[in-house]
């Protein structure tokens, strides 16, 4: 169960821009993913998530370093790796000018799927898209497009799935349904997402990438522990003049990490809980109400590490 199914060794990717400038998209990345694990890749835009997924799925060549998928070198054994992996890039990689059924039939032929009709029926019924298969994908809603894109990946019956933003833009009910489906798959999944709650519910371990570097690889709980000293407080203040005055005072305090305006008040992050009494003393000078301490989430970790 704990066999390493993906390993990267100093994986580096450099892009050359038209003006001759070089951009380091990945800088000596070393990560490993175990068989059956759902592994999350987090990071701001441009962190290198898509580049990493593209290299691991053999679409892109690294500049230096290497990676092994199923114990096979990605550069030397691309053909063998391709047979066993499924790649999903959001609601893309689907022909919008074809019907859902034609799309799935086409990919079934490319991947030499046996008994494709039955398989397409089973998967699309499970994903609740079977009745829409005869329609052109361009007429689908975003949720339906994501379901058909996911059907394509599941149809392949790959051993490992690379899912890039698989649930972006879905309503909470559909998100919940698809999370359940993904959890029930019992497959190795490498998932990139900006939706912290999705990563939180799905992933056992999470790698945080920023500017091409792996900042940290850890479990969700350990990430939260990182913020044990971190305090987030929300409070209301209705007096406009005082509100402005308080905002200026908070901005001048160096232990305040972040101040954001919320309805009728502020949401404030304090870097270390030892400053909490000082902060409360400061608030005491103003007519504040409903002071609430809020538990840190993966979103806060994201902001902290970015």
């Amino acid at each position: 169960m704990n066999e390493k199914i993906i390993e990267t060794f100093d994986l580096t990717k450099e892009y050359k821009l038209k003006n001759g400038e070089k951009i380091l998209a990945l800088n000596k990345i070393n990560i490993s993913i175990n068989e059956g694990e759902i592994f999350g890749l987090l990071g701001p835009n441009g962190a290198g998530k898509t580049t990493l997924v593209s290299i691991l799925s053999t679409l892109l060549q690294p500049t230096s370093g290497t990676a092994k998928v199923f114990g096979l070198d990605i550069q030397k054994n691309a053909k063998r790796i391709k047979r066993r992996l499924g790649l999903m890039l959001g609601d893309e990689m689907i022909y919008y000018r074809m019907t859902g059924l034609d799309n799935l039939k086409f990919f079934a032929r490319l991947y030499r799927i046996k008994n494709p009709k039955q398989k397409i029926k089973d998967i699309t019924t499970k994903l609740g898209i079977y009745n829409k298969l005869g329609d052109y994908v361009s007429n689908f809603s975003r949720g339906q497009k994501l379901r058909i894109a996911l059907s394509r990946v599941l149809l392949i019956d790959a051993d490992i799935l690379f899912l890039d933003e698989p649930l972006l833009g879905l309503d909470p009910k559909t998100t919940r349904e698809l999370i359940k489906i993904l959890l029930d798959l019992n497959k190795t999944i490498l998932l990139t997402s900006h939706q912290m709650h999705v990563v939180q519910q799905l992933c056992e371990r999470i790698a945080f990438l920023n500017k091409g570097n792996v900042i940290k690889v850890d479990t969700h709980d350990n990430y939260i522990k990182l913020l044990s000293e971190f305090i987030k407080i929300r409070f209301n203040i209705f007096d406009r003049a005082k509100k402005f005055e308080l905002e200026n005072e908070l901005k001048s305090l160096n232990y305040i990490k972040n101040i954001s305006k919320v309805k009728n008040g502020f949401l404030v992050s304090i870097s270390d809980n030892k400053y909490y009494p000082n902060f409360l003393t400061c608030l005491g000078k103003y007519p504040v109400q409903k002071v609430q301490e809020i538990e840190p989430t993966l979103d806060d970790v994201f902001v902290e590490l970015s």
Partner: peptide, 17 residues
């Protein structure tokens, strides 16, 4: 142009074809 924007070229290139 269409296949590039739909990212279906990626889908074809990543398939064992």
């Amino acid at each position: 142009y269409d296949e590039k924007s739909w990212k279906t070229l990626n889908a074809v290139f990543v398939a064992p074809v």
